[in-house]
Design a protein around this nucleic acid. Structure first.
Length: 417
RNA sequence: GGGAGAGUGUCCCGAGUGGCAAAGGGGGCGGACUGUAAAUCCGCUGGCUUACGCCUUCGUAGGUUCGAGUCCUACCUCUCCCA
Protein backbone atom coordinates (compact mmCIF):
# COMPACT_ATOMS: atom_id res chain seq x y z
CA UNK A 1 0.00 0.00 0.00
CA UNK A 2 2.85 2.31 0.73
CA UNK A 3 4.01 3.98 -2.41
CA UNK A 4 6.36 6.30 -0.61
CA UNK A 5 10.02 6.37 -1.50
CA UNK A 6 11.34 8.35 1.42
CA UNK A 7 12.10 6.52 4.60
CA UNK A 8 10.19 9.07 6.65
CA UNK A 9 6.86 8.76 4.88
CA UNK A 10 7.36 5.05 4.40
CA UNK A 11 7.70 4.56 8.15
CA UNK A 12 4.90 6.92 9.10
CA UNK A 13 2.58 5.39 6.59
CA UNK A 14 3.21 1.72 7.35
CA UNK A 15 2.88 2.32 11.06
CA UNK A 16 -0.47 3.99 10.63
CA UNK A 17 0.28 7.59 11.45
CA UNK A 18 -0.94 9.20 8.27
CA UNK A 19 -4.45 10.44 7.69
CA UNK A 20 -3.99 13.24 5.20
CA UNK A 21 -0.95 14.69 3.45
CA UNK A 22 -0.80 17.73 1.23
CA UNK A 23 1.03 17.12 -2.02
CA UNK A 24 2.34 13.70 -1.03
CA UNK A 25 4.61 13.24 -4.04
CA UNK A 26 6.37 16.56 -3.58
CA UNK A 27 6.82 15.99 0.14
CA UNK A 28 8.05 12.46 -0.46
CA UNK A 29 10.62 13.70 -2.94
CA UNK A 30 11.74 16.42 -0.57
CA UNK A 31 12.09 14.04 2.35
CA UNK A 32 14.10 11.72 0.16
CA UNK A 33 16.43 14.36 -1.15
CA UNK A 34 17.06 16.37 1.97
CA UNK A 35 16.73 16.70 5.69
CA UNK A 36 13.45 18.37 6.38
CA UNK A 37 12.35 20.23 9.46
CA UNK A 38 8.85 19.63 10.79
CA UNK A 39 6.93 20.87 13.76
CA UNK A 40 3.96 19.98 15.89
CA UNK A 41 2.35 22.43 18.27
CA UNK A 42 1.21 21.47 21.75
CA UNK A 43 -1.19 23.62 23.70
CA UNK A 44 -0.62 24.09 27.39
CA UNK A 45 -4.13 23.49 28.60
CA UNK A 46 -3.24 20.89 31.24
CA UNK A 47 -0.27 20.27 33.52
CA UNK A 48 0.68 17.16 31.60
CA UNK A 49 0.06 15.77 28.16
CA UNK A 50 -2.04 12.63 27.96
CA UNK A 51 -2.03 9.77 25.53
CA UNK A 52 -3.99 11.80 23.02
CA UNK A 53 -0.74 13.62 22.37
CA UNK A 54 1.28 10.48 22.16
CA UNK A 55 0.68 9.94 18.47
CA UNK A 56 2.04 13.38 17.54
CA UNK A 57 4.99 12.85 19.85
CA UNK A 58 5.76 9.54 18.23
CA UNK A 59 5.79 11.24 14.86
CA UNK A 60 8.43 13.64 16.08
CA UNK A 61 10.36 10.64 17.31
CA UNK A 62 10.23 8.97 13.91
CA UNK A 63 11.23 12.22 12.23
CA UNK A 64 14.43 12.21 14.18
CA UNK A 65 14.99 8.48 13.73
CA UNK A 66 14.76 8.82 9.99
CA UNK A 67 17.28 11.62 9.90
CA UNK A 68 15.11 14.71 9.94
CA UNK A 69 14.75 17.57 12.36
CA UNK A 70 11.70 17.77 14.64
CA UNK A 71 10.51 20.90 16.40
CA UNK A 72 8.33 20.61 19.47
CA UNK A 73 6.45 23.88 19.64
CA UNK A 74 5.00 24.85 22.98
CA UNK A 75 1.87 26.91 22.58
CA UNK A 76 2.74 29.41 25.26
CA UNK A 77 1.19 32.14 23.15
CA UNK A 78 -1.66 30.37 21.39
CA UNK A 79 -2.94 28.80 24.58
CA UNK A 80 -3.75 32.31 25.72
CA UNK A 81 -6.22 32.44 22.86
CA UNK A 82 -7.67 28.92 22.79
CA UNK A 83 -8.18 26.69 19.79
CA UNK A 84 -11.86 26.34 18.83
CA UNK A 85 -11.18 23.28 16.65
CA UNK A 86 -13.40 20.41 17.56
CA UNK A 87 -14.80 22.14 20.60
CA UNK A 88 -18.47 22.83 21.12
CA UNK A 89 -17.96 25.40 23.80
CA UNK A 90 -15.49 28.15 24.24
CA UNK A 91 -12.42 27.02 26.00
CA UNK A 92 -11.97 28.43 29.40
CA UNK A 93 -9.48 31.24 29.39
CA UNK A 94 -6.44 30.21 31.37
CA UNK A 95 -4.39 32.60 33.41
CA UNK A 96 -0.86 33.28 32.28
CA UNK A 97 0.51 31.77 35.48
CA UNK A 98 -1.40 28.59 34.83
CA UNK A 99 -0.16 28.41 31.28
CA UNK A 100 3.40 28.86 32.44
CA UNK A 101 3.01 26.05 34.96
CA UNK A 102 1.45 23.75 32.41
CA UNK A 103 4.20 24.52 29.97
CA UNK A 104 6.95 23.46 32.32
CA UNK A 105 5.07 20.25 33.06
CA UNK A 106 4.53 19.41 29.42
CA UNK A 107 8.02 20.23 28.32
CA UNK A 108 9.53 17.44 30.43
CA UNK A 109 8.11 14.58 28.43
CA UNK A 110 9.83 15.48 25.19
CA UNK A 111 13.29 14.77 26.46
CA UNK A 112 12.32 11.11 26.64
CA UNK A 113 11.65 10.88 22.94
CA UNK A 114 13.92 13.41 21.35
CA UNK A 115 17.53 14.44 21.48
CA UNK A 116 17.69 18.19 21.74
CA UNK A 117 20.71 20.31 20.97
CA UNK A 118 22.37 22.45 18.34
CA UNK A 119 23.64 19.70 16.08
CA UNK A 120 22.25 19.16 12.60
CA UNK A 121 19.89 16.32 13.54
CA UNK A 122 19.05 17.62 16.98
CA UNK A 123 15.50 18.46 17.89
CA UNK A 124 14.41 22.00 18.67
CA UNK A 125 12.18 23.16 21.49
CA UNK A 126 10.38 26.39 20.68
CA UNK A 127 7.67 28.47 22.30
CA UNK A 128 5.36 30.62 20.24
CA UNK A 129 4.99 33.07 23.10
CA UNK A 130 8.43 34.25 21.99
CA UNK A 131 7.03 35.86 18.88
CA UNK A 132 3.30 36.12 19.53
CA UNK A 133 3.39 37.97 22.83
CA UNK A 134 5.18 40.95 21.40
CA UNK A 135 3.16 41.38 18.24
CA UNK A 136 1.96 44.84 17.45
CA UNK A 137 -1.70 44.72 16.53
CA UNK A 138 -1.74 47.13 13.62
CA UNK A 139 1.49 45.86 12.14
CA UNK A 140 0.23 42.33 12.42
CA UNK A 141 -3.03 43.13 10.70
CA UNK A 142 -1.22 44.83 7.83
CA UNK A 143 1.46 42.18 7.39
CA UNK A 144 -0.50 39.05 8.11
CA UNK A 145 -4.17 39.86 8.43
CA UNK A 146 -4.44 41.14 4.90
CA UNK A 147 -3.70 37.66 3.57
CA UNK A 148 -6.75 36.19 5.24
CA UNK A 149 -10.21 36.21 3.78
CA UNK A 150 -12.96 36.19 6.34
CA UNK A 151 -15.20 34.55 3.76
CA UNK A 152 -12.80 31.68 3.61
CA UNK A 153 -12.19 31.52 7.33
CA UNK A 154 -15.92 31.11 7.85
CA UNK A 155 -15.84 28.01 5.71
CA UNK A 156 -13.42 26.11 7.93
CA UNK A 157 -14.91 23.34 9.98
CA UNK A 158 -13.74 24.69 13.30
CA UNK A 159 -15.68 27.88 12.66
CA UNK A 160 -18.56 26.46 10.68
CA UNK A 161 -19.36 23.92 13.34
CA UNK A 162 -19.90 26.64 15.89
CA UNK A 163 -21.91 28.82 13.56
CA UNK A 164 -24.11 25.97 12.38
CA UNK A 165 -24.88 24.97 15.90
CA UNK A 166 -25.42 28.54 16.87
CA UNK A 167 -22.76 28.27 19.50
CA UNK A 168 -20.82 31.30 20.48
CA UNK A 169 -17.47 31.82 18.83
CA UNK A 170 -15.61 34.73 20.27
CA UNK A 171 -13.44 36.97 18.17
CA UNK A 172 -10.56 35.88 20.35
CA UNK A 173 -10.94 32.26 19.29
CA UNK A 174 -11.67 33.23 15.73
CA UNK A 175 -8.12 34.53 15.55
CA UNK A 176 -6.56 31.28 16.62
CA UNK A 177 -6.13 29.94 13.12
CA UNK A 178 -4.38 33.10 12.04
CA UNK A 179 -1.90 32.83 14.88
CA UNK A 180 -1.25 29.19 14.16
CA UNK A 181 -0.72 30.00 10.51
CA UNK A 182 1.70 32.69 11.53
CA UNK A 183 3.58 30.20 13.72
CA UNK A 184 4.26 28.09 10.67
CA UNK A 185 5.63 31.08 8.77
CA UNK A 186 7.73 32.14 11.73
CA UNK A 187 9.18 28.65 12.15
CA UNK A 188 9.97 28.56 8.47
CA UNK A 189 11.89 31.81 8.78
CA UNK A 190 13.70 30.80 11.93
CA UNK A 191 14.40 27.14 11.28
CA UNK A 192 13.52 26.45 7.68
CA UNK A 193 10.59 24.40 8.84
CA UNK A 194 8.56 23.15 5.89
CA UNK A 195 6.15 20.64 7.37
CA UNK A 196 3.54 20.90 10.06
CA UNK A 197 2.01 17.78 11.52
CA UNK A 198 -0.89 17.33 13.91
CA UNK A 199 -4.15 15.59 14.62
CA UNK A 200 -6.81 15.40 11.94
CA UNK A 201 -8.70 18.26 13.55
CA UNK A 202 -5.73 20.48 12.81
CA UNK A 203 -5.96 20.13 9.04
CA UNK A 204 -7.72 23.44 8.50
CA UNK A 205 -5.32 25.34 10.71
CA UNK A 206 -2.33 23.79 9.01
CA UNK A 207 -3.60 24.51 5.53
CA UNK A 208 -4.00 28.14 6.53
CA UNK A 209 -0.34 28.14 7.45
CA UNK A 210 0.59 26.73 4.07
CA UNK A 211 -1.36 29.45 2.29
CA UNK A 212 0.15 32.15 4.41
CA UNK A 213 3.64 30.80 3.77
CA UNK A 214 3.09 30.93 0.05
CA UNK A 215 1.76 34.46 0.20
CA UNK A 216 4.28 35.96 2.56
CA UNK A 217 7.41 34.02 1.75
CA UNK A 218 6.63 32.29 -1.49
CA UNK A 219 7.57 29.10 0.31
CA UNK A 220 6.20 25.65 -0.34
CA UNK A 221 5.00 24.19 2.92
CA UNK A 222 3.37 20.87 3.70
CA UNK A 223 0.73 19.40 5.98
CA UNK A 224 0.46 15.93 7.45
CA UNK A 225 -2.21 14.82 9.87
CA UNK A 226 -2.80 11.70 11.92
CA UNK A 227 -6.07 9.83 12.16
CA UNK A 228 -8.16 10.28 15.26
CA UNK A 229 -7.32 7.28 17.37
CA UNK A 230 -10.33 5.48 18.72
CA UNK A 231 -10.74 2.04 20.16
CA UNK A 232 -12.24 -0.56 17.88
CA UNK A 233 -15.52 -0.31 19.74
CA UNK A 234 -15.61 3.32 18.77
CA UNK A 235 -14.85 5.03 22.02
CA UNK A 236 -12.42 7.87 22.21
CA UNK A 237 -9.18 6.71 23.63
CA UNK A 238 -7.64 7.76 26.85
CA UNK A 239 -10.10 7.30 29.66
CA UNK A 240 -9.63 4.99 32.57
CA UNK A 241 -11.21 4.60 35.93
CA UNK A 242 -8.94 7.27 37.27
CA UNK A 243 -9.56 9.74 34.47
CA UNK A 244 -7.27 10.76 31.68
CA UNK A 245 -4.21 8.71 30.91
CA UNK A 246 -1.50 11.21 31.73
CA UNK A 247 2.05 10.91 30.58
CA UNK A 248 3.51 12.48 33.69
CA UNK A 249 4.51 9.97 36.37
CA UNK A 250 3.28 12.32 39.09
CA UNK A 251 -0.22 12.20 37.65
CA UNK A 252 -0.36 8.55 36.63
CA UNK A 253 2.06 5.93 37.92
CA UNK A 254 4.00 3.71 35.55
CA UNK A 255 1.94 0.83 36.90
CA UNK A 256 -1.32 2.62 36.07
CA UNK A 257 -0.01 3.46 32.65
CA UNK A 258 1.01 -0.14 32.06
CA UNK A 259 -2.43 -1.30 33.14
CA UNK A 260 -4.08 1.02 30.66
CA UNK A 261 -2.31 -0.67 27.77
CA UNK A 262 -2.75 -4.14 29.20
CA UNK A 263 -6.52 -3.61 29.00
CA UNK A 264 -6.47 -2.78 25.31
CA UNK A 265 -9.28 -4.31 23.30
CA UNK A 266 -8.31 -7.29 21.14
CA UNK A 267 -9.03 -5.52 17.91
CA UNK A 268 -6.68 -2.67 18.71
CA UNK A 269 -3.55 -4.56 19.64
CA UNK A 270 -1.80 -4.63 16.28
CA UNK A 271 -2.65 -1.03 15.48
CA UNK A 272 -1.50 0.17 18.87
CA UNK A 273 1.75 -1.78 18.70
CA UNK A 274 2.59 0.04 15.51
CA UNK A 275 1.63 3.44 16.82
CA UNK A 276 2.77 3.33 20.40
CA UNK A 277 5.85 1.14 20.42
CA UNK A 278 9.00 1.17 18.35
CA UNK A 279 9.13 -2.57 17.85
CA UNK A 280 10.05 -3.71 14.34
CA UNK A 281 7.10 -4.43 12.10
CA UNK A 282 7.89 -8.12 11.64
CA UNK A 283 7.85 -8.58 15.40
CA UNK A 284 4.54 -6.79 15.55
CA UNK A 285 3.18 -9.00 12.79
CA UNK A 286 4.13 -12.05 14.82
CA UNK A 287 2.37 -10.71 17.92
CA UNK A 288 -0.66 -9.65 15.94
CA UNK A 289 -1.13 -13.19 14.68
CA UNK A 290 -1.78 -14.49 18.18
CA UNK A 291 -5.34 -15.59 18.77
CA UNK A 292 -7.70 -16.08 21.66
CA UNK A 293 -6.09 -16.16 25.03
CA UNK A 294 -2.63 -15.85 23.56
CA UNK A 295 -3.34 -12.32 22.49
CA UNK A 296 -2.83 -11.42 26.12
CA UNK A 297 0.87 -11.96 25.56
CA UNK A 298 0.77 -9.36 22.84
CA UNK A 299 -1.01 -6.97 25.18
CA UNK A 300 1.71 -7.43 27.76
CA UNK A 301 4.36 -6.63 25.21
CA UNK A 302 2.39 -3.57 24.16
CA UNK A 303 2.06 -2.45 27.75
CA UNK A 304 5.70 -2.92 28.60
CA UNK A 305 7.05 -1.35 25.42
CA UNK A 306 4.74 1.64 25.58
CA UNK A 307 5.50 2.16 29.25
CA UNK A 308 9.23 1.85 28.64
CA UNK A 309 9.09 4.71 26.18
CA UNK A 310 7.75 7.20 28.61
CA UNK A 311 8.67 5.89 32.06
CA UNK A 312 11.86 4.04 31.20
CA UNK A 313 12.62 0.38 30.77
CA UNK A 314 13.16 -0.33 34.46
CA UNK A 315 9.84 1.14 35.55
CA UNK A 316 8.09 -0.73 32.77
CA UNK A 317 9.59 -4.06 33.79
CA UNK A 318 8.67 -3.39 37.37
CA UNK A 319 5.08 -2.59 36.40
CA UNK A 320 4.92 -5.77 34.35
CA UNK A 321 6.25 -7.81 37.26
CA UNK A 322 3.84 -6.17 39.70
CA UNK A 323 0.98 -7.05 37.41
CA UNK A 324 2.21 -10.60 36.95
CA UNK A 325 2.43 -11.23 40.66
CA UNK A 326 -0.91 -9.59 41.31
CA UNK A 327 -2.98 -11.11 38.54
CA UNK A 328 -1.29 -14.32 37.61
CA UNK A 329 -0.12 -15.55 40.97
CA UNK A 330 -2.77 -13.80 42.97
CA UNK A 331 0.11 -12.88 45.21
CA UNK A 332 0.85 -9.60 46.79
CA UNK A 333 3.39 -7.45 45.06
CA UNK A 334 4.94 -4.88 47.36
CA UNK A 335 5.32 -2.59 44.39
CA UNK A 336 1.59 -1.96 44.06
CA UNK A 337 0.58 1.62 44.71
CA UNK A 338 0.90 2.23 48.43
CA UNK A 339 -0.51 4.67 50.92
CA UNK A 340 0.85 5.18 54.37
CA UNK A 341 -1.10 5.62 57.56
CA UNK A 342 0.19 6.32 61.07
CA UNK A 343 0.60 3.23 63.26
CA UNK A 344 -1.65 4.71 65.89
CA UNK A 345 -4.51 5.20 63.50
CA UNK A 346 -4.46 1.55 62.55
CA UNK A 347 -4.02 0.38 66.15
CA UNK A 348 -7.19 2.25 67.07
CA UNK A 349 -9.10 0.47 64.34
CA UNK A 350 -9.46 2.23 60.99
CA UNK A 351 -12.90 2.08 59.37
CA UNK A 352 -12.99 0.34 56.00
CA UNK A 353 -14.88 3.23 54.46
CA UNK A 354 -12.30 5.75 55.55
CA UNK A 355 -9.47 3.48 54.45
CA UNK A 356 -10.81 3.17 50.91
CA UNK A 357 -11.42 6.87 50.66
CA UNK A 358 -7.91 7.53 51.88
CA UNK A 359 -6.54 5.11 49.32
CA UNK A 360 -8.30 7.07 46.60
CA UNK A 361 -10.19 4.02 45.39
CA UNK A 362 -13.51 5.69 46.09
CA UNK A 363 -14.43 9.35 46.34
CA UNK A 364 -16.68 9.29 49.41
CA UNK A 365 -17.93 7.12 52.22
CA UNK A 366 -21.21 6.85 50.39
CA UNK A 367 -19.55 5.45 47.31
CA UNK A 368 -17.64 3.01 49.48
CA UNK A 369 -20.90 1.83 51.00
CA UNK A 370 -22.42 1.30 47.62
CA UNK A 371 -19.44 -0.63 46.43
CA UNK A 372 -19.62 -2.84 49.49
CA UNK A 373 -23.25 -3.53 48.74
CA UNK A 374 -22.33 -4.37 45.18
CA UNK A 375 -19.59 -6.68 46.35
CA UNK A 376 -16.83 -4.60 44.85
CA UNK A 377 -14.65 -4.06 47.88
CA UNK A 378 -12.15 -6.52 49.28
CA UNK A 379 -9.56 -6.45 52.02
CA UNK A 380 -6.72 -8.92 51.62
CA UNK A 381 -8.76 -10.52 48.85
CA UNK A 382 -11.73 -11.16 51.12
CA UNK A 383 -14.94 -9.40 50.20
CA UNK A 384 -16.15 -6.90 52.76
CA UNK A 385 -19.81 -7.28 53.64
CA UNK A 386 -20.02 -5.13 56.74
CA UNK A 387 -19.44 -1.46 56.14
CA UNK A 388 -18.83 -0.97 59.84
CA UNK A 389 -15.87 -3.29 59.98
CA UNK A 390 -12.50 -1.84 60.81
CA UNK A 391 -8.94 -2.55 59.86
CA UNK A 392 -6.60 -3.49 62.67
CA UNK A 393 -2.94 -4.46 62.95
CA UNK A 394 -4.02 -8.10 63.13
CA UNK A 395 -4.87 -7.94 59.43
CA UNK A 396 -1.36 -7.02 58.42
CA UNK A 397 0.09 -9.60 56.10
CA UNK A 398 3.57 -11.06 56.62
CA UNK A 399 4.78 -8.26 54.35
CA UNK A 400 3.45 -5.75 56.86
CA UNK A 401 0.68 -4.29 54.71
CA UNK A 402 -3.06 -4.58 54.14
CA UNK A 403 -4.25 -4.99 50.58
CA UNK A 404 -7.28 -2.96 49.59
CA UNK A 405 -9.02 -3.84 46.33
CA UNK A 406 -11.79 -2.27 44.33
CA UNK A 407 -13.02 -4.67 41.74
CA UNK A 408 -10.66 -7.23 40.27
CA UNK A 409 -8.20 -4.80 38.91
CA UNK A 410 -7.53 -1.94 41.23
CA UNK A 411 -5.39 -2.52 44.25
CA UNK A 412 -3.72 -0.32 46.81
CA UNK A 413 -1.55 -1.36 49.70
CA UNK A 414 -2.02 0.26 53.07
CA UNK A 415 1.12 0.47 55.08
CA UNK A 416 1.49 1.59 58.68
CA UNK A 417 4.37 3.94 59.45
C1' G B 1 -34.38 49.53 21.42
C1' G B 2 -39.10 46.08 21.04
C1' G B 3 -41.21 40.96 21.02
C1' A B 4 -40.74 35.38 21.68
C1' G B 5 -38.11 31.23 23.82
C1' A B 6 -34.26 28.68 26.62
C1' G B 7 -30.72 27.81 30.95
C1' U B 8 -32.20 20.89 35.23
C1' G B 9 -28.46 16.28 39.19
C1' U B 10 -20.54 20.35 38.24
C1' C B 11 -19.25 14.26 32.65
C1' C B 12 -22.95 14.85 28.60
C1' C B 13 -27.96 14.67 26.57
C1' G B 14 -32.69 15.21 28.58
C1' A B 15 -38.24 14.58 31.01
C1' G B 16 -40.43 17.21 34.87
C1' U B 17 -48.70 18.14 37.02
C1' G B 18 -46.59 22.90 43.63
C1' G B 19 -45.05 17.47 47.79
C1' C B 20 -38.65 16.07 44.20
C1' A B 21 -32.92 13.75 45.92
C1' A B 22 -36.04 14.98 40.89
C1' A B 23 -38.15 10.14 34.98
C1' G B 24 -35.15 8.26 30.95
C1' G B 25 -30.72 7.72 28.05
C1' G B 26 -25.36 7.93 27.13
C1' G B 27 -20.88 7.70 29.77
C1' G B 28 -18.61 5.85 34.27
C1' C B 29 -18.03 2.30 38.44
C1' G B 30 -19.16 -2.55 40.52
C1' G B 31 -21.08 -7.79 39.94
C1' A B 32 -21.93 -12.31 36.75
C1' C B 33 -19.71 -14.59 32.31
C1' U B 34 -14.48 -14.52 30.34
C1' G B 35 -8.74 -14.12 28.72
C1' U B 36 -7.09 -8.17 33.46
C1' A B 37 -10.52 -8.26 26.06
C1' A B 38 -15.19 -7.42 23.43
C1' A B 39 -20.37 -8.52 23.45
C1' U B 40 -24.36 -9.71 26.87
C1' C B 41 -27.10 -9.63 31.51
C1' C B 42 -27.69 -7.48 36.62
C1' G B 43 -26.74 -3.54 40.35
C1' C B 44 -25.03 1.40 41.51
C1' U B 45 -24.16 6.45 39.84
C1' G B 46 -25.34 14.26 45.47
C1' G B 47 -22.89 14.65 50.77
C1' C B 48 -23.06 13.18 56.04
C1' U B 49 -24.97 9.26 59.18
C1' U B 50 -24.98 2.33 62.22
C1' A B 51 -29.84 4.09 61.69
C1' C B 52 -34.92 7.11 62.26
C1' G B 53 -32.88 11.05 59.73
C1' C B 54 -30.16 15.57 58.47
C1' C B 55 -27.81 18.76 54.81
C1' U B 56 -26.84 20.64 49.71
C1' U B 57 -28.70 20.64 44.50
C1' C B 58 -32.61 22.61 38.89
C1' G B 59 -28.72 30.26 35.57
C1' U B 60 -28.35 34.45 39.97
C1' A B 61 -30.92 37.22 43.81
C1' G B 62 -35.35 38.10 46.15
C1' G B 63 -40.83 37.01 46.89
C1' U B 64 -45.72 34.14 47.30
C1' U B 65 -46.82 29.39 49.86
C1' C B 66 -47.28 24.72 55.29
C1' G B 67 -44.29 23.38 51.03
C1' A B 68 -41.15 25.83 44.79
C1' G B 69 -37.22 22.79 39.58
C1' U B 70 -42.38 23.94 39.02
C1' C B 71 -45.91 30.33 40.50
C1' C B 72 -44.35 35.97 40.82
C1' U B 73 -40.37 40.05 40.41
C1' A B 74 -35.58 41.72 39.13
C1' C B 75 -30.98 40.51 37.10
C1' C B 76 -27.29 37.51 34.10
C1' U B 77 -26.27 34.43 29.75
C1' C B 78 -27.71 32.27 25.09
C1' U B 79 -31.06 31.69 20.76
C1' C B 80 -34.91 33.43 17.40
C1' C B 81 -38.04 37.39 15.26
C1' C B 82 -38.83 42.79 14.53
C1' A B 83 -36.20 47.82 14.39
Amino acid sequence: MSAYKSELLEVLSTRGYIHQVSEPEALDALARASKITAYIGFDCTAPSLHIGSLVPIMMLYWMQQTGHRPIALMGGGTTRVGDPSGKDDSRQILTDERIAENLTGIRKVFAKFLKFGDGPGDAVMANNADWLNTLNYIDFLRDVGRHFSVNRMLSFDSVKLRLDRQQELSFLEFNYMILQAYDFVELNKRYGCTLQMGGSDQWGNIVNGIDLGRRMLNAQLFALTTPLITTSSGAKMGKTAAGAVWLDADMLSAYGFWQFWRNTEDGDVARFLKLFTVLPLDEIARLAALKGQEINDAKKVLATEATALIHGRAAAEEAAETARRTFEEGAMAETLPTIEVPQAELAGGLGVLAAFVKAGLVKSNGEARRQIQGGGIRVNDVAVTDEKSTLTPSQLTPEGVIKLSLGRKRHVLLKPV
